[in-house]
């Protein structure tokens, strides 16, 4: 049996994001892509489950950036057994979650995993998160905001975070789909040399898929949040700024 992990590349939000002239997408030429950080946690959680149960880990992704190989080889170097890449006529486009799930569902069904793990959310999932969408399409039990998993006979036990530190324990019949918030351990690091080795020694399986029918909500425009109400900016040298901060605190009796 296998554990399927779905990885997605997303624009790095720590960098500056520019909106394309169309107004309905980011300027894809100027973004740099990273693997969705929660997907990294999903992979780590799967690798931890593998250590406990011996399951194979298969990483799966839809190549919307043309750069997915790097992410898949890194996953192989970290300890995944197989990598599957869905390719089609959608490079450079922003696929909705439902379109993505529509492409993935038949491939996942074919892989017939015990569990599907993916990130709890992604920075670009305008029409919602992948785990519940895929769960609904496959009609498999699913849940998100998962911070711990344990596989047992025919079930997976998960710890789901609510709020304020409250935890909910759930038991889902397998196969199930999980949206991982945080793995039980910090996602492992893998040296570049090991990634290069994976590139030499393993192959990524490719599956050609049809361009999905777009099902995203209508989007009239993207924009940056309004500048109104933004902070008053303190400028100058660090010591000027420190002085101003302490003045502000003194004026309010906070220091």
């Amino acid at each position: 049996m296998t554990l399927a992990v779905i990885l997605k590349q997303v624009p790095d939000v720590v960098e500056e994001l520019a909106i394309a002239p169309s107004g309905t997408d980011l300027d894809r030429d100027s973004v740099s892509y990273v693997v969705n950080e929660f997907d990294e946690h999903a992979l780590e959680e799967a690798l931890l489950l593998r250590e406990a149960t011996g399951e194979d880990v298969v990483v799966v992704g839809v190549d919307t950036t043309g750069e997915l190989d790097q992410a898949l080889y890194t996953a192989l170097a970290k300890g995944a057994q197989r990598a599957v890449k869905l390719v089609g006529d959608f490079e450079g486009s922003w696929l909705s979650t439902r379109a993505l799930a529509g492409l993935l569902a038949p491939v996942i069904r074919e892989l017939s995993p015990r569990l599907v793990l993916t990130g709890v959310q992604a920075p670009d999932d305008l029409d919602g998160q992948l785990a519940p969408t895929l769960g609904a399409l496959l009609d498999w039990p699913h849940t998100g905001v998962v911070v711990g998993t344990e596989l047992a006979d025919g079930v997976v036990r998960v710890r789901k975070e609510l709020w304020g530190g409250i935890m909910l324990d759930l038991e889902l019949a397998t196969p199930a789909v999980l949206g991982i918030q945080a793995a039980r351990a910090t996602p492992r690091y893998v040296p570049v040399g090991r990634v290069r080795q994976a590139m030499r020694e393993s192959t990524i399986e490719e599956v050609e898929v049809e361009t999905p029918v777009e099902s995203a909500p209508k989007l009239s425009r993207l924009r940056a949040p309004e500048a109104a109400g933004r902070a008053e900016m303190l400028t100058g040298s660090p010591s000027d700024v420190a002085e101003r901060i302490l003045e502000i605190l003194r004026a309010r009796g906070l220091y």
């Binding site: 939000v13 994001l17 980011l26 920075p123 305008l126 209508k218 993207l222 924009r223 940056a224």
Partner: peptide
């Protein structure tokens, strides 16, 4: 979206 850096306006019919 995008960690709060971008807003997407979606008309609802």
């Amino acid at each position: 979206l995008f960690g709060g850096k971008i807003l997407a306006d979606c008309p609802v019919g």
